[in-house]
Structures are given as structure tokens and as C-alpha cells.
Nucleic acid binder design. Structure first.
Lengths: 125, 125
DNA sequence: CTGGATCCTAACTGATACTG
DNA sequence: CAGTATCAGTTAGGATCCAG
């Protein structure tokens, strides 16, 4: 019977929340975007190559596309520096701070889930 | 100059958080999972067809796969009811509560982002 | 009602090489 | 250094039909 865990909202509100959820997930879809953002949170402005190193395994082409997506959604800025060999810096916009709670929540969940998986492996052994 | 918005962590901790982030995003990857979870939060236990209606646009095959993924990750339970035409109920597990903050954060962000986009359209007009 | 089987396509991802 | 071009592989997601 297990009392079902839920909290019913006003239908209209629920629909609005559903739409918001779709918008948000669309925005940060893709395999790398959250990681890129987390790295920028941690290190501040980073250059292309540094981001590539930090996002272990990503290829330049894919990184380039992900960065463009993020820039299009105004979560990061792209700045070309007039240095000897041209360098480019990527940094978070203020708007990107809005998404930080999401990332923190994801990290927390990831940590807990990892523990849970370990417990199961322990039980299975 | 713009003071870069960041907060540097201990490297080892950062790596651990990056891994957790990857784990978590992998878990809820896909176009529909968050929506399914949000609906279950809102309505409690739901049957296959109700979930399909709530996740407007999803096909049975895809819904089936998403539900299996969620069940494999122990975020939902699948219960077969011995009713006349067999029905099946899906409900959240306690573990799924851990992911609720993520969804709330995503919804919040989605709402804010929507407002932001509207502002831009207003400026463009 | 539930959801598997099949087929299909667009999008994502990757390896490698190359340019400004 | 910061990418883009090309080629190729994989796969997520959808359309349709059908079975228990």
C-alpha cells in the first residue's frame, strides 16, 4: 500500500511547471554542458584548451558546438583576447548563476546515488 | 575586467563533484524522464496510459523504455494490478525523493529563463 | 490497457586532419 | 591556440502495427 509520495498542485500551475521543466532540460541537454558550467564555476574564466582538458574526452568540434549553444542561451560569454597567439576566454554570465542550484542539486544526487550503488554491490557480495 | 564569478574548490573535491555530475546526468538523460518524475510527484501513482497523456507527445514505446530506465535506477516502482483488464501502476521510490531538489531547481530556472526570453523579445520589439 | 516488434531518420558524437 | 572540415559510426527518438 505504501503511502504514495506526492504533492498535488493546482493543474494550471502544474502545467506551467511542466513547460518550464521542458524549457530548462532542453537548454542544458547534451552530454557536456553541465560539466562545462561546473568547471567554469570552479575555475572562473577559462580558455578553449583548458576547457577541453577539463572536460576529459571531449573533441574540439563537440566542445565548440557546446560552447556555442551555451553562448546562444546567454549562459556564457566568449571573449577574444588580443594576445600574441590569439586566445579566447569563456566565462559565466550572471544569468548562469540561476542554474547553479540545478548543478549543485545534481551533484548532491550523484554523490548519494553513488553511495547507494555501492551499498547494493556490498549486499550482492 | 568583470570579476569572474567562481568559487574554486579543492582539486580532488572538484573531480569528485565532476564525476557525480556525470553520474547524475546520465541517470536522468533523455527527453522525458524529468517530466515523468514531475508528474509522479504531482499525481502520485499513475498508470501507463495516464503517464502517456501527461507526457504529451510521447509514444508508448519510448515511454516504456523511459519507465524501464527509471525502474532500473530504482527511481520508480512498477506494480501490476490484478484488475479486469490488467493495469499497471508506476510510483516513486523513496530514493526518487533525493532527485526532487534537482527538478525543483530546474523548474525554477526554466521559469526565470522564460521571463528572460520574454524581456528580450520586448526589447527587440 | 500495456507495451513489445519493426523500421526509419535525424541528431549526436567521434577520429582525423587541416587552417588562420 | 582556437577552432573548422570531412567522414563515419552510433543512437535516441518517432511512426506504425500488433499481441497478451
Amino acid at each position: 500500500m505504501a503511502a504514495t509520495v506526492h504533492c498535488e498542485q493546482d493543474p494550471a500551475l502544474h502545467q506551467e511547471r511542466l513547460r518550464a521543466l521542458r524549457d530548462a532540460t532542453e537548454l542544458v541537454s547534451g552530454k557536456w554542458k553541465f560539466g562545462i558550467l561546473l568547471n567554469l564555476y570552479n575555475y572562473g574564466a577559462m580558455r578553449f584548451k583548458d576547457l577541453q582538458a577539463a572536460s576529459a574526452g571531449i573533441t574540439p568540434k563537440v566542445l565548440s558546438k557546446e560552447l556555442q549553444d551555451l553562448e546562444d542561451n546567454q549562459l556564457i560569454t566568449r571573449t577574444v583576447n588580443a594576445t600574441k597567439p590569439v586566445t579566447v576566454s569563456y566565462a559565466l554570465t550572471p544569468h548562469a548563476l540561476e542554474i547553479q542550484p540545478v548543478i549543485n542539486a545534481l551533484v548532491e544526487f550523484g554523490l548519494k546515488h553513488r553511495v547507494k550503488i555501492k551499498e547494493q554491490l556490498a549486499l550482492a557480495a
